[in-house]
Design a protein around this nucleic acid. Structure first.
Length: 259
DNA sequence: ATGACCGGTCCCACCGGA
């Protein structure tokens, strides 16, 4: 079984790439983030033509997540139970479902913007709510994973230059502590292998030739419980999908499971 | 080549991304 996570940065603009990628990789379940569409705009018909159904949490121009599956979608939960609001709104940043033998979340963790910004406190509160909401499944015997854009680089090895990020979000101790607390529920970081260079970055800024210079970050993560992690036969970052005109600024992370 | 931001928006610039 092949599962993947991909911050697609607009499912509308990226639809031709999405369909071609699903076909070429034979992915069974894809977790999407930043769909940037309404529920009505989500391309259910095009995906159904390839044999996929989708569970979607979206409300317009920002954020938006989905689970796209050709191996079933059961017990769908839309949103993060107990999750915080930002400016009075529950943003579409989480959706979970059972896909065949595994329980999966697709999450888009808030960016945080700047240290001390209300969005930063919101980010930390959101990660804490995720920890609480996922604790039972994390400790369970069914393969379970939270995949998505965490907007946190777990270690200094996960950014191209630590000095570049001094004083910025994504690398601070409170953010990394929040990830550590999440792992402590029984989840481990399934680190993919890079297809080139030495580090499995998943994101490269559009600006300043970041991708050709490999000035990247590993912020798209797969946190799986022990039954999930034990079933992993391979994991890699598909950096090929970051290439060319019309790419997302994130590459998909692909995980193969023996389940 | 992987090549010097991009997507969305009621619109001629700005927000959000990280």
């Amino acid at each position: 079984m092949r599962i993947a996570t991909w911050n697609i940065n607009s499912v509308t603009v990226r639809l031709p790439r999405l369909l071609a990628w699903l076909e070429s990789t034979g992915t069974d379940v894809l977790c999407l983030q930043e769909t940037k569409c309404t529920l009505e705009q989500f391309p259910h018909d095009e995906l159904r033509a390839l044999g996929y159904e989708a569970a979607v949490n979206a409300n317009g121009r920002w954020n938006g997540v989905a689970l796209v599956s050709r191996v079933g979608l059961a017990d769908v939960v839309v949103g993060l139970p107990g999750g915080p609001e930002y400016e009075g709104v529950q943003e579409p940043r989480a959706v979970s479902a059972t896909c065949g033998p595994v329980r999966l979340w697709s999450v888009y963790v808030p960016n945080g913007r700047e240290i001390g910004h209300p969005h930063y406190a919101y980010k930390l509160a959101w990660l804490e709510a995720l920890r609480v909401a996922a604790a039972d499944d994390a400790a369970g015997s069914r393969p379970f994973a939270i995949l998505g854009d965490y907007n946190v680089a777990p270690t200094d090895e996960d950014v191209f230059d630590t000095s570049f990020f001094e004083g910025q979000t994504h690398v601070t101790a409170p953010e990394r502590d929040a990830l550590a607390a999440l792992r402590k529920t029984g989840l481990e970081d399934v680190v993919p292998r890079p297809l080139k260079y030495d580090r499995p970055y998943t994101y490269w800024d559009y600006r300043q030739l970041s991708f050709p210079k490999n000035r990247g970050m590993r912020i798209d993560l797969v946190y799986g419980n022990s039954p999930f992690a034990k079933a992993v036969s391979d994991a890699y970052v598909d950096r090929e999908e970051r290439k060319g005109k019309g790419a997302s600024d994130h590459a998909p992370v692909v995980v193969d499971l023996d389940v």
